[in-house]
Amino acid sequence: MSDHEQVTGVGAYVVVFLALMVLTSLTVGAAFVDLGPFNDVVALAIAFTKATLVVLIFMHVRHASRLTKITVVAGFLWLLILFGITLTDYFSRGFLG
């Protein structure tokens, strides 16, 4: 972070809020359409988009130092490791018959 704090304006916050509202309607609407296995993919893609907007704009990570950005991404990577290794175990148990 520089000496002068980067201040996000009210306009940006309102735009992000409206985008989050549109995405919420989209996720509800998409749930009622039969997309087969892609229903979950669409729901998660929308949720990740919403979360990213909140993290970057509401939580100011857009203007954060490189150290903070690495910390945020590392948190997400550790989550992927937790999911990846555990699910590799659960989903492969039937492979050996």
Binding site: T27, A31, F32, V33, D34, N39, L44, A47, K50, A51
Partner: peptide
């Protein structure tokens, strides 16, 4: 934001 679709919106497409 993650809880809402994962808990409330399962299998609403009638399949």
């Amino acid at each position: 934001i993650f809880l809402f679709p994962l808990l409330y919106l399962l299998g609403r497409n009638g399949v």
